[in-house]
Amino acid sequence: MADGAAEAPPRETMTARGRRALYRARRRLRRSAVDYFRGDASDWFAFGALFLLVPLITVVTLMVPIWCPPTALVLPLLAGALLLRPSSLVLLYAAAASALAVEAALLGPYHLGPGRVTPGSVLVMGAVGAGGLLVAQLRSRVGVPWRGGGTMLFDLRERLKVQSQIPALPPGWHAEMALRPAGGQSFSGDFLVAARTGDGSRMLEAVLADVSGKGMDAGSRALLLSGAFGGLLGSLPPHDFLPAANGYLLRQEWDEGFASAVHLVLDLDTGEYELLSAGHLPGMQRCMGKGHWETKEAEGPLLGIFEGAKFTGLRGRLERGDVLMLCTDGMVEAPGRDLSEGMDRLMGEADRLIGSPFVGTAWRLIETVAKDLNDDRALLLIWRE
Rank of each mutant, 00 (worst) to 15 (best):
R337S: 07
P237Y: 02
L100R: 05
R20C: 06
Y36M: 04
L232Y: 12
R85E: 12
E341A: 12
Q165R: 13
A79N: 09
L82Q: 09
T197V: 14
L204E: 04
D240F: 07
P238S: 05
M125S: 07
G230L: 05
W254A: 01
S88W: 13
A370H: 03
R364I: 03
A195L: 02
H292M: 07
R38L: 14
V128A: 02
G330P: 10
E103A: 12
L281P: 04
A130P: 01
R85C: 00
G198D: 02
P86W: 06
P145G: 13
A194K: 01
P70Q: 12
F306L: 15
M14N: 02
G230C: 05
L326W: 04
E349T: 10
T197S: 07
L91W: 15
R180T: 05
T13P: 00
A350C: 11
A182Q: 07
L276D: 01
V34T: 12
G18L: 15
D267M: 12
L78V: 15
S87F: 04
G115M: 05
G230I: 05
L107P: 08
G300P: 08
D351M: 04
P167L: 03
G279R: 11
L346N: 02
E367H: 09
R345C: 06
P282D: 11
R337E: 14
L353Q: 06
P76R: 12
R384I: 04
P335W: 11
L208Q: 03
V64E: 10
L208N: 03
F191E: 01
S140W: 14
L365I: 09
L62G: 11
L223V: 10
M177Y: 13
D43C: 09
A175E: 02
F51V: 02
R377C: 05
P335T: 11
M331E: 02
L303I: 09
V265A: 10
A99Q: 05
A95F: 06
G355C: 08
S220I: 12
Y273M: 08
F241A: 07
R180K: 10
G321C: 08
A182S: 15
S235H: 12
R345F: 04
P70R: 13
L84R: 10
M177V: 08
R157I: 01
P237L: 08
D35C: 09
V142H: 07
M1I: 02
L112T: 14
L266I: 09
Q285I: 11
S220Y: 04
T368G: 00
D210C: 05
L160S: 14
R315I: 00
S186P: 00
A97G: 14
L249Y: 09
D267G: 09
A33V: 13
M152I: 11
P70L: 11
V207H: 01
S42G: 15
D40M: 10
P119W: 13
M203S: 08
F241M: 12
V162A: 07
S260H: 02
E272A: 13
L156P: 00
L53C: 11
A309S: 14
D375M: 03
V74G: 08
G129K: 04
